[in-house]
Simulated scan of single mutants.
Amino acid sequence: MRVSVPTIPQFLLERVPSRPPISTTAAIERVADFIRPGNVTVLTGAGVSVDSGIRAYRGKDGRYMNPNYKPILYHQLVDRTEKGFRFRQRYWLRSFVGYPPVRDSQPNTTHFALAALQYKSVISRLITQNVDGLHHKAISHVWDEPTRQSRILELHGTLHKVSCSSGHVVDRQTFQDWLADANPKWKEFMAESERTGIQPRTNPDGDVVLEGVSYDDFVVPDCPTCFSENKRNCNHKPHLIFFGESIPQDVKGRSFTDVECGDRLLMMGTTLATFSAFRLVKHALEQHKPVMLLNVGPTRADDIPEVEKVEIPTGTILRQVVAAVLGNETHDPAVTEMLRSGVFNPPSNDSNQ
């Protein structure tokens, strides 16, 4: 089976249209004018979480930032043979090390600005390709979980839940504790990393690259529920979509419905390299909806004339966009608090961290 990491086709990278730089003032005005009518569906990608310290997959030139990175593919993770077990050892060791930076990340100013627009119903639905849960964190103080689940669609799943192959679900921190208890050497490694602040480079899915490491002695614990039923089962998977895995039909269908229910589609922080996101652009255009893309660098939609592109970092303008759209409604205490909130902690350019 041949599965490759999704990317922007080379011919698009080679013919990226040249656009004059846009001023901050002009960008604020264009984005505000686009969303002011309301009932907007928003699609976000990894670029939205960069200011929270989570690296994007691709750089400003649109190319994969670590071309030698080899993620675990879906068919490898679920393989029930000894070979599959080795893949799971590799995945869960790297994810054990990489999960805490994602778990501990906090929403940035873009997350909170979007939350303010969601709270005021300017954004009616939000679809995210991110698995970090930061959109939920940003609005959890004003929306309960059922409301969040109905208004935020995690297109590629979440890193914060794990299931065994029999379907027993556990929250990720509990699973993280199981991994720590089963692997005291790596538990100590993590404690040392926390003391020194030196962490391996973490990808948006919580995976890391560990050089010169043997995975052979890493213990992936059995599912306790399966064990209580006299079964041994250490085949676990996080609730995210792996490369080579299909998005569930109910999630795919809901993503199309969310686009259809909105009057316009605003995308931000995404190169649209994955087809699961790009097909939503195509669907919106087929529905004759206005489409805007807010992203720095090349994207898969750059040669589509119907897509209006604004090339500027979201964190630079989105608070001002919210103020321009909501006007006096920014005096709502909840909105005021959101527009004062958000970290700015972009990751280091050091590829070893």
Results as ranks from 00 to 15, higher is better:
352 N>P: 01
315 G>P: 01
263 D>I: 03
95 S>M: 09
288 H>T: 07
334 A>V: 14
336 T>H: 14
58 R>V: 02
344 F>H: 15
37 P>N: 06
53 G>P: 08
179 L>M: 12
294 L>D: 02
238 P>V: 11
285 L>G: 14
3 V>G: 02
267 M>Y: 06
40 V>P: 00
206 G>W: 02
244 G>L: 02
310 V>H: 01
41 T>L: 04
181 D>W: 10
217 D>H: 11
94 R>N: 10
347 P>H: 11
122 V>D: 00
104 D>H: 09
250 D>Y: 10
145 E>F: 10
155 L>S: 12
205 D>R: 00
198 I>H: 13
166 S>C: 15
247 I>Y: 01
170 V>H: 05
283 H>K: 15
337 E>I: 09
6 P>I: 13
44 T>F: 02
170 V>F: 11
22 I>F: 04
143 W>E: 07
289 K>N: 08
168 H>F: 11
194 E>P: 03
340 R>H: 12
131 V>F: 00
231 K>C: 09
9 P>R: 08
86 R>E: 14
295 N>M: 02
178 W>K: 04
47 G>P: 06
214 S>M: 15
249 Q>W: 05
343 V>R: 06
132 D>C: 13
327 G>S: 11
5 V>E: 05
87 F>K: 04
346 P>Q: 05
52 S>Q: 09
188 E>G: 08
74 Y>N: 07
285 L>Y: 12
313 P>N: 06
234 C>Q: 07
198 I>V: 15
48 V>R: 00
186 W>V: 13
303 D>L: 15
229 E>I: 10
54 I>R: 03
61 D>I: 09
219 V>I: 15
258 D>P: 00
199 Q>T: 13
338 M>V: 10
198 I>M: 13
236 H>S: 07
190 M>A: 07
110 T>G: 04
155 L>H: 10
150 S>I: 01
57 Y>C: 07
349 N>Q: 15
270 T>C: 11
100 P>N: 08
343 V>G: 03
96 F>M: 13
232 R>F: 09
194 E>Q: 11
228 S>N: 08
288 H>M: 03
73 L>M: 13
305 P>M: 04
176 Q>V: 01
179 L>T: 08
269 G>Y: 07
190 M>K: 11
119 Y>V: 01
53 G>H: 08
305 P>N: 09
141 H>S: 12
214 S>T: 15
276 S>Q: 14
30 R>H: 11
325 V>C: 01
255 S>W: 01
88 R>A: 11
67 P>Q: 06
113 A>D: 00
224 P>S: 05
236 H>L: 12
20 P>V: 08
144 D>W: 00
80 R>C: 05
77 L>T: 00
124 S>T: 04
239 H>N: 08
110 T>H: 04
312 I>D: 03
292 M>V: 13
187 K>I: 05
73 L>D: 05
341 S>W: 02
230 N>K: 14
51 D>W: 05
304 I>N: 03
126 L>M: 10
70 K>N: 09
108 N>H: 02
164 C>S: 05
147 T>C: 05
19 R>K: 13
323 A>G: 04
218 F>T: 14
215 Y>W: 14
188 E>H: 13
276 S>A: 15
150 S>Q: 14
254 R>K: 12
28 I>K: 09
